[in-house]
């Protein structure tokens, strides 16, 4: 369960207060809201990339408010994908596991398992410069899921994709997040995307979180 309680987050002159949000374990939460309303700021605070000046954030009952990003076990897929230009697709997926000193054989098996799920097995030796938008998204998804995170944070992951690729990747995200049993928080502007993927719907409106029963515009 992702639980954000009475959080205040300050980003320069921008401040969001009294953020409250709960997403049950294994569920898919959707966060929507106007551009500049602070959706990414909430996601960054959840990942530990931005300090929370008040309130608590916990995952599965464990308070992670003061923990560093590396200690939170959260997979993060930012809007600009942020692939590492000098690494191959294989190295991207293996990166987190290598940092966490997993066994070599386990790393290799996990890379191939995810590459199979994400349909990028034929791209494992390629560098990001030679990948299409959809392939980059899949690589970033593999990188985020490889270390078996408790939570996956997706910041408008499909915003740069064309309509055909968009639909493919939606189906893929749905399948992969279910197979990996990960609790997900996904930021999007598209109602269709939200209704296809989400179980829980939140709107960030004038600095407040409103929960909805279904996807909304």
């Amino acid at each position: 369960m992702i639980s954000i309680k009475d959080c205040t987050i300050q980003a320069g002159n921008f401040k969001i207060t009294d953020i409250n949000m709960q997403i049950p374990t294994g569920s898919y939460g959707i966060l929507m809201g106007k551009t500049g309303s602070g959706k990414t700021t909430i996601l960054e605070a959840l990942c530990g990339l931005r300090k929370v000046s008040a309130g608590t954030i916990s995952i599965n009952g464990q308070d992670i408010t003061k923990k560093r990003p590396a200690e939170r076990n959260i997979g993060f897929l930012p809007q600009d994908i942020a692939l590492f230009e000098h690494m191959s697709v294989y190295e991207h997926i293996a990166f987190g596991m290598r940092i966490q000193k997993w066994d070599k054989k386990v790393i290799d098996d996990r890379v191939h398992e995810l590459a199979e799920q994400l349909q990028i097995k034929h791209l494992l030796e390629r560098k990001p410069a030679g990948l299409s938008g959809g392939e980059k998204q899949r690589t970033a998804m593999g990188r985020a899921l490889a270390v078996r995170p408790q939570v996956l944070c997706l910041d408008e992951p499909l915003s740069t994709l064309d309509d055909d690729t968009h639909e493919d990747v939606i189906n893929l995200i749905k399948a992969v997040t279910q197979e990996n049993e990960v609790t997900t928080l996904h930021i999007t502007h598209r109602k269709s995307e939200a209704s296809l993927l989400g179980d829980h719907f939140f709107e960030l409106c004038e600095g407040r979180i409103i929960q909805h029963q279904e996807a909304f515009v």
Binding site: A82, F84, I99
Partner: peptide
């Protein structure tokens, strides 16, 4: 700084993010 931030969510400390991501980049 996004690449380094992603690396930190994957288990890197700041030093590892610097040497493994920022410097090669």
């Amino acid at each position: 700084p996004r690449q380094e931030q992603v690396a930190m969510t994957l288990g890197c400390n700041r030093s590892q993010a610097f040497w493994l991501i920022a410097v090669p980049g």
